[in-house]
C-alpha cells in the first residue's frame, strides 16, 4: 500500500535511523522539511556538509573538534598535569558545563563491553598510555566513567594498566546527590557515601 511518494518515504527511512527518532517523529520531520521549502532545506544540507567536512577527532584527546589539536588541548591556561578520562565526547561537554575543571581530557570512545565483544584494544587506551610516557607532565589521571558495571570495569582496567606509571589515579566520588534527603537514601548509596567521606576543612 503506497502511502507516500517514494522520495518522501526514503527521507522518512533515513530520519528514522537517527537516535531518539521513531516512525511518527520521522514523518513529522519529513513533512516539516518539505513544507518549509527550498531555502530551509538548502541551509540544512549546507550545515550537514560543513559539519561533515570540518569536524573531526582531536589527535591528542579524541574529542570532536574543527582544529587539530582541539582548543582545549591547545589552551595554555589549562592545567597540563591533569587528565580526565571519559567515555564519549558528550561527557566532556557535561564536565565543562559543570565548570570548575581546568585540566585536559582523554576520550576513550566507548567502554569495555564484554557482552558486545568490545575489549580494551577497541578503545583509545594506547593513546592514553602514550600521553603518559616518559617526560609527560601529567601527575593525575581522573577516571570519570559511568557508574554502571561497564564503566566500573573500564575504570578498574585502566587503574591496573596505569599502576606501574608514576601517576596518581583517582575516580569520581559516588554518593548522595545534592538536595537529597538522608532519610530517604537507600543503604547502598549511604554506605558508599560513608566510604568516600572527606574531612571538613
Amino acid at each position: 500500500m503506497p502511502v507516500f511518494p517514494d522520495a518522501i518515504q526514503s527521507l522518512v527511512d533515513e530520519l528514522r535511523k537517527l537516535p531518539g527518532i521513531g516512525p511518527k517523529s520521522a514523518q513529522r520531520l519529513a513533512f516539516h522539511l518539505i513544507v518549509a521549502g527550498k531555502p530551509a532545506i538548502n541551509k540544512l544540507i549546507s550545515s550537514l556538509e560543513e559539519a561533515r567536512d570540518r569536524v573531526g577527532y582531536c589527535s591528542v584527546c579524541g574529542n570532536l573538534t574543527e582544529s587539530d589539536p582541539c582548543p582545549i588541548c591547545q589552551d595554555s591556561k589549562r592545567d597540563r598535569t591533569l587528565i580526565c578520562v571519559v567515555g564519549y565526547p558528550k561527557d566532556v561537554l557535561a564536565i565543562e558545563r559543570a565548570g570548575g575543571y581546568r585540566g585536559l581530557y582523554h576520550v576513550l570512545h566507548g567502554y569495555i563491553e564484554p557482552l558486545k565483544g568490545v575489549g580494551p584494544e577497541d578503545l583509545r587506551t594506547k593513546e592514553l598510555l602514550a600521553r603518559l610516557g616518559p617526560g609527560s607532565p601529567v601527575k593525575e589521571v581522573i577516571l570519570a566513567t559511568n557508574p554502571d558495571v561497564d564503566g566500573e570495569t573500564t575504570a578498574l582496567y585502566l587503574a591496573k594498566v596505569l599502576k606501574p606509571l608514576e601517576v596518581r589515579v583517582t575516580r569520581l566520588a559516588r554518593g548522595l546527590p545534592f538536595g537529597a534527603d538522608l532519610d530517604y537514601a537507600d543503604e547502598v548509596t549511604l554506605a558508599r557515601s560513608l566510604e568516600g567521606r572527606r574531612e571538613v576543612t
Binding site: I112, E113, P114, L115, G117, G119, P120, E121, V149, D150, E152, T153, A155, L156, Y157, A159, K160, V161
Partner: peptide, 26 residues
C-alpha cells in the same frame, strides 16, 4: 553475565585477562 562472556572466550588475551581481574573485584 559479563564475566561469563569473557570466560567463554576461546583465547584470553592479556588485556581481557586484566579486564576479568577488574570484574572479579566488582
Amino acid at each position: 553475565t559479563r564475566r561469563n562472556a569473557i570466560l567463554k572466550k576461546a583465547f584470553m588475551s592479556s588485556s581481557w585477562d586484566k579486564t576479568l581481574e577488574g570484574l572479579d573485584q566488582i
